[in-house]
Design a protein around this nucleic acid. Structure first.
Lengths: 187, 187
DNA sequence: CTGATTTTTTGATTTTTATCAATAGTTCTC
DNA sequence: GAGAACTATTGATAAAAATCAAAAAATCAG
């Protein structure tokens, strides 16, 4: 299994000392299946690295929920808009399976950035990757039909299909759960 | 009219010296209406600040084009995926009206970040704002009906409706131009 | 293990939106 | 300023997907 150190080292050849400074601020947390990393209305004051597990981030609309993203081990997750602005989150993030996380608080991270510009550099690189991924997701949903979107998800992120419920995947792919169920039957 | 200095100063209280270092690397460029900031297939090696003007960024699909975003004066624009990775762009960015730009090359920007961490800090803050805006756009398109999407655009970014063609706005809002035309007739 | 609850599938129908096609309006060029 | 080229509107129809409803399957709790 990849450690957080392995993953961070891939982003840039940042001094070992800086990485250690970062790792010292991490807190280990476990969230059981069905538990929450952040709930709508709370301020997201922690950035989490998923060491092991699988999470879903979603919004409420009327009394339904709409999936915004899925994240798995090796990825960072936070309600980004809330974390960045330190204002209440519109997003809820739940553990779809037991999660083993390493978390850093907003304040600790900002303090580290002031003390050590290598860490802000690293964060910048990670943020850029996440920006590009988000842009790709936006474009992907504009360009494809319902069936193509499902097939591409199967191709690129089969673990989502294994682990998430049909209704959760359907709203992620912008279709009703009945439509997704029919697409599944047709292939 | 707001200068680039005014806008940057809003993001953080970065030393004047750093700002001046950045501004010295900017190159002034004018792009006529209908001209291009970047074309599909080229590597986007410049980040542009729009001092005056209005641009549209789009992808080609089959022989049609699909609008990804509009940007106006006071905003930064680049084909971000290409700029970040320094690989060819899938995106084309055209000037919908005469544009007065300040541009910095990728290499100059990276060099500045190495020399002056205040500038990387500033860039990080700007990137965060753009990340949040992108996320909002993604969520917005998931939550609303065709008519709601148009009404919200009218409310929040009426300049787009003034300046862009119906077909360009329609693909931005994820609908056919006929549907948008009918929505316009109905309100 | 078994009944209860939740999730998924399937069917019938309606709604929404896309597509195709023709006309009207605008703007560009010479 | 007249004709050409492009853009927008309107109409008719088709296709895609949503909604409503019920049955089947899977999962959970005791």
């Amino acid at each position: 299994m990849e450690t957080i150190l392995n993953i961070l080292q891939k982003f840039s050849n940042i001094p070992q000392e800086s990485l250690e400074r970062f790792v010292r601020k991490l807190q280990e947390t476990n969230i059981p299946k069905g538990g929450f990393l952040i709930r709508e209305g709370e301020i997201c004051d922690r950035l989490s690295f998923i060491q092991k597990g699988f999470v879903r981030s979603y919004y409420f609309k009327d009394n339904k929920d709409i999936t915004i993203s899925f994240s798995m081990q090796g990825e960072f997750i936070a309600s980004m808009a809330s974390f960045i602005s330190q204002k209440p989150s519109y997003e809820t993030i739940e553990a779809l399976e037991h999660c083993h996380l390493y978390q850093i608080s907003y304040q600790d991270l900002m303090d580290l950035f002031e003390k050590d510009s290598h860490l802000e550099h690293l964060y910048r690189l990670i943020l850029e990757q996440y920006y590009v991924a988000l842009e790709e997701h936006l474009i992907f949903s504009k360009f494809k039909t319902a069936k193509e979107r499902y097939l591409e998800l199967m191709e690129n992120q089969p673990h989502i299909i294994q682990k998430a419920a049909v209704g959760q995947i359907a709203s992620y792919l912008d279709m009703s759960l009945e439509t997704l169920s029919r697409i599944r039957a047709s292939i």
